[in-house]
């Protein structure tokens, strides 16, 4: 094999392996009772290990970012943009990426990554991103309006403005791609590179 082909083969091998793992995981024949049970056990084991820690971390981060954004926008007389800024920053950009990075940093199983692990890790990324985003929205509401129900109409309206169909689709696609990348790729460095590429690609699509 010529050197360029060797380099190409070496470069694409992890992606080919990742694709084969993904295909194996989503093939209905794979979803036997035993695999489903093992996937569920893996999911719960990993979730029990990472979920409380991640929820706490993302909650603190959300609290800090919400406070910074609210105070800064108030000082510049632009407080009407605080809520939408926080939503875009936390829910759309930061938290899905943080969830993926946290799962990627978890210890991987020795040897070949099995289908139950691919399923459980994908599910875990989606679960972490979802739970932390819900928490961030609640913190954003409390940070901007305080403990009162009277800001709910404005909050709902802002949610409607921020999450237009394109943003919603980009968010869903991003989380799904993050989940698949983290679950199927073996190398942590490669995973981070892919996460970065996905983030940039979706930012370009979103703001083009």
């Amino acid at each position: 094999m010529s050197p360029p082909l060797t380099v190409l083969s070496r470069t694409t091998r992890p992606f080919v392996e990742a694709a084969s793992r993904l295909l194996a995981a989503i093939t209905p024949a794979t979803w036997t009772l035993a695999v489903r049970r093992e996937a569920a056990q893996c999911l719960w084991t990993d979730a029990a290990q990472i979920l409380p820690r991640f929820v706490l971390l993302s909650g603190l981060l959300s609290l800090a970012i919400v406070h910074i954004v609210v105070v800064t926008t108030q000082s510049y007389g632009l407080s009407q943009f605080a809520l939408s800024t926080v939503m875009r920053l936390l829910v759309v950009e930061l938290l899905p990426l943080l969830a993926a990075i946290n799962v990627a940093l978890m210890p991987t199983p020795q040897g070949e990554v099995s289908s139950p692990h691919v399923i459980s890790r994908s599910m875990l990324v989606i679960a972490l991103a979802t739970v932390s985003s819900a928490l961030a929205l609640a913190i954003a509401y409390l940070g901007v309006y305080g403990l009162t129900p009277w800001g709910l109409a404005t909050f709902t309206h802002t949610v409607g403005q921020v999450f237009d169909p394109i943003v919603l689709l980009a968010l869903a696609l991003k989380t799904l791609l993050f989940a698949v990348s983290v679950a199927t790729l073996n190398s942590t460095v490669l995973t981070f590179g892919v996460l970065l590429c996905i983030e940039i690609l979706l930012l370009v699509i979103e703001f083009l």
Partner: peptide, 18 residues
């Protein structure tokens, strides 16, 4: 065919995962 890994089986882990 993937082999099931030797993860420690938790109590009601399946239900909690679901």
């Amino acid at each position: 065919m993937d082999k099931p890994s030797s993860a420690p089986p938790g109590v009601h882990a399946e239900r909690k995962a679901i």
